[in-house]
Design a protein around this nucleic acid. Structure first.
Lengths: 245, 245
DNA sequence: CGCGCTTTTGAAAAGGCTCAAAATTGGTGG
DNA sequence: CCACCAATTTTGAGCCTTTTCAAAAGCGCG
């Protein structure tokens, strides 16, 4: 199964059974016990270029999209020229997973691709039914939902209570953790294709200042951010830094 | 059914049927069609004094509490001496309604009473069963959940993108709207028992500065805040103000 | 090689913070 | 009804983090 993104070829396993993402997704229960049922309700694998708006705020998603490759973000539109990034979506995430629980509710955010992306789409109602079939299928979903709430809540608290540098540190730590859970950390680092402009927006600060702040974190050896990769040499140290400063 | 809070007497309808809160709650569907089934799964009506911690972050709520009277807030503990108020809970709200959907998941926030409070508690599993009995019972729950997400998300965006005064304005507007929906607006205003210290915390600013900002809004005639009541003379004007400044 | 995008840097200004301390308010007990 | 205490609101002055607004420098790609 080969798809194209721009001019680049991308291949995805024909069956969900062999997909490396499976164990880190919201449907990991299904993936383990009956991967073929999963494949059966997958309707397509789509490649989408970067900077595309997948969903607009207020839309009602009909399909369930799981990210195979690439980053996206959830964005809230404030006005014509102001927006706020609410969260980053990484491989293994389900894009609009609040709509698994509340199908029919309009999205309270838009979704935008950051990089080129490969998505697997599932037939919404079939997928929901499958997920609710067994307790061990539903459980991971609840866990992930709780985790998402936790993450949003955490960001809110960080914006309210922490300094610019601490906010950066905490976002980096969260992303490291999420990548680790999905086996996406290699050599202590992971792909980090987010421009400083997006980063600034998501943390409620300006491009100029996030640049200075990151430089500072770099010079202190707390983070290594280069060539689209983020490495945190000493997690505990960065954590401690985020608590104090 | 009489209860005491401190030295003050409080009375609550014996049956949920006559409760003024019913139509604004998450169980409004049940309240309308079969209020007696609701009363049947109500286990008690409790009075709780102000400044009490009802739930600690990480606890797993066993009962479902609906607020009959008084304000509370959801709080995230950052460290020993730092915390962030995530949202305010007003009469008609369900305190831990995320646990209706995800029973067994630990709370990602603590809950604290702001004023003296009167709560109705419902037996968790009976309540959930009741709520899932009919589509028209579940629907309002989904709506409220979506609204809550919306509100958190909105606050996050406001902290990220707006000035201090705009943040205050928007919080006031949100609270006005929520009170209006529950028929708790009288003479254009509503009870507002929140100290500036709490307000400051919830909006990520300092006591001193929120005081100055509120004074300013007052002088511009945008809000009237006195004697524990908040009145917004001109909603549209305050809204417009929040967008620009 | 040149174009567009991202990162980096500078200088000045402002918004919001800190740390007090004073003034009000509301509730309590005598 | 008054006096008092604790909590809340208000005010002041100085400071610091973060913003603003450019403009320069780097980088990736065709």
């Amino acid at each position: 199964m080969i798809h194209t993104v721009g001019r680049r070829k991308v291949d995805v396993p024909i069956s969900c059974r062999d997909c490396a993402r499976g164990s880190g997704t919201v449907y990991r229960g299904i993936h383990r016990s009956s991967p073929d049922q999963l494949t059966a309700c997958r309707t397509q694998v789509r490649a989408i270029p970067s900077t595309r708006m997948l969903y607009r705020q207020g839309e009602i998603p009909q399909a369930i999209f799981s990210v195979h490759k690439g980053w996206l973000c959830r964005v809230r539109q404030i006005s014509d020229r102001k927006k706020q990034i609410l969260s980053f979506i990484i491989p293994g995430d389900t894009i609009t997973f609040s709509s698994i629980f509340m199908p029919g509710q309009p999205l309270s955010y838009g979704v935008q691709s950051i990089t080129d992306v490969v998505l697997c789409s599932f037939e919404r109602d079939k997928f929901r039914q499958l997920l609710h079939q067994e307790r061990q299928f539903t459980e991971p979903y609840h866990q992930d939902l709780a985790e998402y709430l936790e993450s949003i809540t955490c960001r809110l608290a960080d914006l309210g209570q922490r300094s610019a540098k601490a906010r950066i540190a905490r976002l980096f730590l969260e992303l490291h953790l999420r990548h680790a859970k999905r086996n996406l950390v290699a050599d202590g680092g992971f792909d980090f294709p987010v421009s400083q402009a997006l980063l600034a927006n998501s943390l409620g600060m300006t491009k100029a200042y996030i640049n200075r702040s990151i430089s500072d974190l770099r010079q202190q050896g707390l983070v290594i951010l280069e060539a689209g990769r983020l490495t945190i040499p000493d997690l505990a140290r960065l954590q401690a830094y985020a608590e104090r400063k």
